[in-house]
Write a protein that binds this DNA or RNA. Structure first.
Lengths: 153, 153
DNA sequence: TTCAATCCCATTGACGCCCATAAAATCCCA
DNA sequence: TGGGATTTTATGGGCGTCAATGGGATTGAA
């Protein structure tokens, strides 16, 4: 299975269109998909996306009961209601709806981040900040480890 | 199987008509359906809808899937008795009967939200509130998970 | 005859689809 | 191996179609 790998920064034009990176498109077309599903990420101020097949697999996996449990209902709600199907145009672009743009703070550029089975779309500066924060946290933990080993406080 | 995915807010006119979102219509027409079945949702103050085929599937599934703690007769009553078939008009709209409008507190706008196999119609402000509550609950559970993993209280 | 429900038509505004251009990567051949 | 040619990408813009919505006309029942 082809995975989403790499980082690609593309422009967002006046119509809200952005080119899906060719490698991502290839991964999707290998599954005969001509659209992506996007939804707000729970882990940060960005958009998460994947093939529509992944969403439909989640639908199939949900229990089909007349009265859903409260948790199941909430999950279905948060996932399916907030997802949007975005088909490619002839040039391999998708149109990001305004709510999506706002949610991720996107304006003139979008950074596609491969995450394996899924990908994310970030506002480039926000991505920088998030990555810097992740890096410094990793360094802080390393420092703490070193100090602990030395018995220093 | 095409699923109901996404959120679409449409107007309700003076005649009680509302356009069913084109993607939802497409999912129904893929099954040769030209109407929807709606009934009061048991999980919240909104209307739930699906294709007639699903209602029939629920009828057949009832005896085989007893639901713990809930009287099946009550379910049958709540769903089947209050379900209504609403055919599309030429423009892809349905007419929401007054009881339905009242039940969901609908006035001038209706928000269609996809839930996979079914969809719901909400009063937009009520939807906002419900979503905020579900979201914070999901985040709280996520926090609990993280803390548990760290052994922090 | 009046009210209500259904059907049909008109508008408009957004969206999908198409083509055009430019840059970059790849290929090919000398 | 180098330079030119060709293909693939990324991006911009225009146009046609369809979806969403409003308003009337027609039918049927009280």
């Amino acid at each position: 299975m082809k995975a989403f790998i790499g980082t690609f920064v593309n422009k967002i034009d006046a119509k809200g269109r952005i080119s899906v990176p060719a490698p991502f498109r290839a991964a999707l077309q290998a599954k005969n998909l001509s659209s992506v599903a996007v939804y707000p990420a729970l882990t940060g101020p960005c958009i998460e996306g994947c093939g529509l097949d992944r969403i439909e697999a989640m639908v199939e996996a949900m229990p089909d009961e007349p009265i859903p449990g409260v948790d199941e209902d909430a999950i279905a709600h948060l996932i399916f209601a907030s997802a949007r199907e975005l088909p490619f145009d002839g040039g391999g672009r998708i149109v990001l709806p305004s709510e999506v743009l706002e949610k991720a703070g996107l304006t003139d550029q979008g950074a596609f981040i491969g995450k394996g089975r899924t990908f994310q779309i970030w506002n480039p500066p926000a991505l920088q900040a998030a990555q810097a924060e992740m890096f410094s946290r990793a360094m802080a933990e390393r420092q703490a480890l070193v100090k602990a080993r030395q018995g220093v406080d």
